[in-house]
């Protein structure tokens, strides 16, 4: 069963820049799906097309469709999409810096009935005890890791059925990345939330995801179960930085990399 299905999606920015060129993917219900790719491949645009945030930045879906639970949502305004249960945690955390932690979490709960606020707040504090310690602190003064926790906490407050995560590992220390991914996995398992995870950290993403897509230039160029992708020699070379023998790559083969990569796209 798939909760999200994106079919032949084409997105144009400012009426001229074609960013997604017929992208198709799907996210299975209750599973974590990873969407990988280099800078500028169109990963963030894909998420924004799903969450409706594209409308605010002169982006437009010109072809194809986004089906959520079987119904098309790509013409809806973002607040309707959030109410339907799709929540995007944006890249770069985007916490409300002049609001304290609890006020940020209340914003996350904006579309939910008042009665579910207290139990959800407890849930967030159970996942992130550190947020509880700092609940009256202004979000702007917290560390990057704490802000990322807050950003995910806001998503938990919104009780999503489909969680879109955009680079949750961005700018975090490796240990924190592990902690964040562990929480994403726990949240997915205990609540049955479907997750679509966009990452540049391919190894971390494929370690939690069951299925993965690899994007280049606005298209999906490879897909498969995470295990297969992890074992695929091209993925190993281009996304995990390993050469055939499983060793780290050295600079001498950069030329080789460029030649092969064109083949992939």
């Amino acid at each position: 069963m798939e909760l999200l299905r994106v079919e032949n999606l084409e997105v144009v920015y400012n009426d001229v820049v074609l960013v997604l060129k017929g992208l198709s993917l799907s996210a299975a219900k209750g599973r974590i799906t990873a969407l990988l790719g280099a800078n500028g491949a169109g990963k963030t645009t894909t998420l924004k097309a799903v969450s409706g945030l594209l409308h605010g930045e002169d982006g437009e879906v010109t072809d194809g469709c986004v089906l959520y639970d079987g119904a098309p949502i790509h013409r809806l305004p973002p607040e309707r999409i959030v109410r339907a249960g799709v929540f995007q945690v944006m890249e770069g955390r985007r916490v409300f810096e002049d609001l304290d932690v609890e006020e940020n979490l209340r914003c996350g709960a904006f579309t939910r009935p008042r009665s579910s606020f207290a139990p959800n707040l407890e849930k967030v504090y159970a996942y992130f005890p550190r947020l509880k310690e700092r609940r009256k602190q202004l979000a702007g003064y917290m560390s990057g890791g704490e802000q990322q926790m807050l950003a995910i906490g806001r998503a938990i407050m919104a009780e999503p059925r489909l969680l879109l995560l955009d680079e949750p590992s961005l700018g975090l220390a490796p240990l924190l990345v592990e902690e964040i991914f562990d929480i994403i996995r726990r949240f997915n398992q205990s609540e049955g939330v479907t997750v679509l995870l966009v990452e540049q950290n391919a190894r971390a993403a494929l370690s939690v995801a069951e299925h993965g897509y690899i994007m280049e230039n606005g298209r999906v160029v490879m897909e498969g179960p995470s295990k297969d992708l992890l074992n695929n020699p091209d993925v190993q070379e281009f996304y995990l930085g390993l050469s055939q023998g499983g060793e780290k790559k050295n600079y001498r083969s950069v030329k080789h990399y460029r030649r092969r990569k064109r083949w992939l796209g």
């Binding site: 969450s51 973002p78 959030v82 904006f110």
Partner: peptide
């Protein structure tokens, strides 16, 4: 935009 992503109209 972040407010929009919370479902705030």
């Amino acid at each position: 935009q972040a407010a929009q992503s919370m479902g705030i109209g």
